[in-house]
Amino acid sequence: MQPIAITRRQLIAGGAAGLAAAALPGIARAQGAWPTKPIRFVVPFAPGGSSEVVARSSAVEMAKLLGTSMFVDNKPGAAGNVAMAEVARADDQHTLILGHIGTLAVNPFIFDKLPYSVAKDFRPISLLAKVPSLYLVHPDLPVKNLKEFVAYAKKNPGKLNYGSAGNGSAGHLAMEYLKMVTDTFITHVPYRGTGPQLTDLMAGRLDAASVGASAVLQFIKAGKLRCIATGTTQRIPQLPDVPTVAEQGYPGFEMTQWYGLLAPSNLPQAAADKLAAAAAKAMKEPALLEHLNNDAAIAVGSTPADFSRFIEQEQKRWKVVVDRAKIKPDN
């Protein structure tokens, strides 16, 4: 797909406020004058990957609806904790953050002390998108699907290994979740990033991994990796012949990376309502849907209440996995 060429210094054109108000009276005219200046949308990861696509494409559409400008600011560090702590303290009412499975549902259980509170410091606004987690093996491994992989792992306990982008990463969680439900023993090899992990997986130095679809579809189609299952509840259009984990004997299984919009808890209710309405509508815009589909991401767009309940459910689910696997953050 063509990259969305927006940098920290390049504001996303929001369109004239008057045009937005005319087109969307329920969003642009209601609840006062907010926003009164450009909105900073913080992404707690380095540029690139699914987080970048979700943030930039949703920012473009939300800016149009809110009648302002919106710029994405990448601020990586400490598994997202640096950015989360900064935004939690922001009091300008024009700073938002991209929440993630890691920062919202996992970090509270793998760090002894967090510099932010998910429940107290943030307002959930909307679940924006989910990115399918794919379960992969090197093509030389003598398995064609998940059932064969599980059988092979049980016949060879501890002999298989899998890589991840680091302790507590989405890929680490995805494989530990699969190990838990399938009762298999596979050794974890943490890397510092998805790139080095994929290099070793394609070279045969790793047996398996779970990676977000956007990063690996090209390698699957080229035959460099074999996808044995998707973590989604339904098959994905990009890999229609690959069954889900649930289809292969584990009903109810779901593993996706997800991203949502949050604001500091001090954002006034009227502004939060306007923002939530814009986010929900933005995730249905054809241009955004095309961008996300090209990256194998699934648009959601939820209410604040639904997103809040979703976070609570995810925290309960991942606490069990973290405790069982004794996951600790990278030093």
Rank of each mutant, 00 (worst) to 15 (best):
P142K: 09
A119E: 13
M202F: 00
K144F: 02
E254G: 04
N294M: 09
I125G: 00
G102F: 00
G260D: 04
T256C: 15
T232Q: 08
P251N: 07
G102S: 09
V242E: 05
P132V: 03
Q10R: 15
I186W: 00
G301L: 03
V150D: 05
K221Y: 09
V150I: 15
G102I: 11
T36S: 05
Q218N: 14
D241E: 13
A46R: 15
F307S: 01
R192H: 03
G77F: 07
I27R: 01
T230K: 06
P237S: 13
V42D: 00
F122A: 01
A30Q: 10
A129F: 02
K113N: 14
P264R: 00
G223F: 09
A21W: 07
A85M: 12
V60S: 01
S117A: 11
N74S: 13
R205D: 12
E254F: 14
L65N: 01
G77Y: 06
F149G: 02
L146K: 14
D323Q: 13
T199M: 11
A85P: 04
N161F: 02
M283H: 07
V216E: 03
V242L: 08
M202W: 01
G15R: 02
L146G: 07
F185P: 01
A16G: 09
D323T: 10
N81A: 15
T232H: 08
L136E: 04
H100T: 05
V143C: 10
E285N: 14
L206D: 01
K319Y: 07
V53T: 14
A153E: 03
F45G: 00
V320P: 01
A229Q: 09
F111Q: 10
S302F: 03
L65S: 03
I39Y: 00
A280G: 06
P304H: 05
R235M: 12
V131T: 15
P139Q: 12
E290F: 01
A119M: 11
A272N: 07
G77C: 08
M84V: 03
A246L: 08
P190L: 12
Y162C: 06
P35I: 03
D92A: 06
K221L: 15
A325R: 05
A209I: 08
L173S: 02
E148S: 06
P124H: 06
K144N: 11
L146Y: 08
E52R: 07
N266G: 06
A170S: 10
V131D: 10
Q218V: 11
H291Y: 10
L65F: 08
E52C: 05
K179H: 14
P25T: 11
G212N: 09
T7N: 12
L288E: 05
G301A: 07
L24E: 09
G195P: 04
T244G: 13
Y116F: 14
D200N: 11
E254V: 13
K221F: 03
A119T: 15
D112Q: 11
D207V: 04
V87S: 02
G26C: 08
V54P: 03
A22T: 13
P108V: 07
G171N: 07
T303E: 12
A21Q: 12
N74R: 05
K155C: 06
I4A: 04
T232I: 09
P139K: 05
D207W: 02
L292M: 13
E290Q: 10
M175F: 08
E285A: 15
